[in-house]
Amino acid sequence: MRLTWADKIAIGLLLAFSLGGIVYSLYFMPVAGLKQAEISVDGRPYKTVLLRPGYKETFRIGGASQYNVIEADGARIRVLEADCPDQICVKTGWVRQAPQQIVCLPWRTVIRVTEAGQTDIDEIAR
């Protein structure tokens, strides 16, 4: 039960290919794993932001009072500032992964991170 030289070369090449591929895909991730943030107020869709690298936007939802200031920076998004009493939405901080969300219950603002391009792999991977 010894590995021959050919075994070792094959294993080495395969590992090099896969690790190289993973590093490559992480560096040039783009299209594969783009996320978007769906912002809704009072249950109605308000705005959808595509979270892409190099993108920055800060905008304000609400009136003079009852507001949320939302900041998107590259692949992440957060509530920068709000005048809600509990400040939970601000303390949630940055979110970037698909099931994460920020909820401001008092002002009924929800920011959900979802996959931008759905590939329904999960349905067939079984």
């Binding site: 039960m1 010894r2 590995l3 021959t4 030289w5 050919a6 075994d7 094959a10 294993i11 395969l14």
Partner: peptide, 11 residues
């Protein structure tokens, strides 16, 4: 000969 059964299995 160059590969063992393990190598065959890995490939």
């Amino acid at each position: 000969p160059p590969f063992s059964l393990i190598g065959v299995s890995v490939l």
